[in-house]
């Protein structure tokens, strides 16, 4: 039988609510799982989550818009977050930023047309002694150089579709 994308999303959310609970304190964990899997939290997803938790969808919207790791706009499969706070800034994060823009062909705040990469700024990610630092999904890259950007992006492209980076560990 044909299953629409919306049906799949609904089933996923119901399963998440079954696993994580339907109390208000389960909202953030559910949203984080949806964001991880779908790279966005759509209006439809927010409505279903609200129904499952028996709260108003505006409550869900309010939470989604508050946290910078949640977004109702579609994000790329790889979200690159370059730290812009002072210690990384002093280690020439601007040069890394420029090269990321050059290699991806987008500006900060944008997603590549193929939906693979989103480029964003992050506030201090706690790698101040090893800057410039950036996160790609859950993996951290430190002492990033402008020349090194290309290889990092190629690494993402190579594993594209396998989602191998999503569970990646820390690189120190």
């Amino acid at each position: 039988m044909l299953r629409t994308e919306q049906d799949v999303l609904r089933q996923d959310i119901v399963a998440l609510a079954d696993r994580l609970g339907r109390g208000r304190e389960s909202l953030l964990p559910i949203l984080q799982e949806v964001q991880r899997k779908y790279c966005t939290i759509s209006d439809y997803a927010m409505q279903i989550i609200a129904d499952e938790l028996r709260i108003h969808p505006v409550e869900v919207y309010g939470v989604v818009t508050f946290y910078s790791f949640l977004d109702f706009r579609p994000k790329g499969r790889f979200v690159i977050r370059l730290c812009r706070t002072i210690s990384c800034d002093m280690k020439e994060k601007n040069r890394v930023a420029r090269q990321l823009e050059n290699d991806l062909g987008i500006k900060f705040g944008q997603t590549t047309p193929d939906g693979k990469f989103t480029l964003e700024w992050a506030n201090c990610i706690g790698m101040c002694d090893q800057g410039p630092a950036m996160l790609i999904n859950e993996q951290v890259f430190t002492n990033v150089t402008p020349e090194g950007v290309h290889e990092i992006l190629e690494g993402c492209r190579r594993v594209f579709g396998v989602h191998a980076l999503e569970r990646g560990g820390a690189r120190r």
């Binding site: 706070t85 002072i86 210690s87 506030n123 201090c124 706690g126 101040c128 002694d129």
Partner: peptide, 15 residues
């Protein structure tokens, strides 16, 4: 939730 710019000791302690 170690977010203060320039702080990373909690990351090391956790690790």
């Amino acid at each position: 939730d170690e977010g203060e710019p320039g702080t990373f000791k909690d990351r090391v302690l956790l690790a």
